[in-house]
Amino acid sequence: MNFISVQNVRFSYDDIEETKNPVYAVDGVSLEFEKGGFTAVIGHNGCGKSTLAKHLNAMLLPDSGKVYVDGDDTSDENKTFDIREKVGLVLQNPDNQLVASIVEEDVAFGPENLGVEPAEIRKRVDSALKAVGMYDYRMHAPYKLSGGQKQRIAIAGVLAIEPQCIVLDEPTAMLDPSGRAEVMNTLIKLNREMGITVILITHFMEEAVLADRVVVMDSGKVLTQGTPDEVFSQVELLKKHRLDVPQAAELAFRLKGRGAKIDKIPLTAEDCVNLLGEVLG
């Protein structure tokens, strides 16, 4: 079995016994997340992606269907804390997730709660801060940091618990372009160098193209999934569901529609320039 297995999950915020026609935020989703993978989940507001994220570490439990994390059923209460040690969650607003007045104390909060030995906490906090490139700021006050820095501290706080997987729910939505780049570079590093499984929920297509796999959700269901190339070349489908595609892909797709000889839809500016160079001759 894969590291996380989501099997036919349905979830409604309505009371399904009391309500006649409950609205299902997640409506029959089955997904597999491999160990060490980097998956981006996209879809517009209300498509169920945040609700899905909260199922991945037992913050929410399915009304029907099952979620297994490393073989453990999330609805088994005895396993809840094991699961949360394995799967850390980072949310959108950095200001809502920092608890201490000194950066390193904030990062230590998780392992302290797990009863980790003080010497081990010191080690974990230092290595987590180094992993996100914030070690020099360990004695700073979090509120004085920029949004991107705060978000990296929040990620360090999760790393100090030594999870195998980090789920991030729109971690860059409130950041500026350089803050977004800081967070994305950190995630790529954690995934490639430390082998941490990353599940990134995002609105930004330029972030999604950096993942190994992209899952597109719509109305509580999985609309399509595949490699970024496979997903973003379906320009029509994405547009129909009012999702963004990278401008590079949109331009190539529309030029193709006008008869230009284009086989593969490019996702990045660089690929697009090379392609257009060939087309123009």
Partner: peptide, 17 residues
Amino acid sequence: GLKVPQITRIMQSLKQR
């Protein structure tokens, strides 16, 4: 620390070529 829109970057690179 700012970026130009992707489409602007693409067209500028083509011009440079």
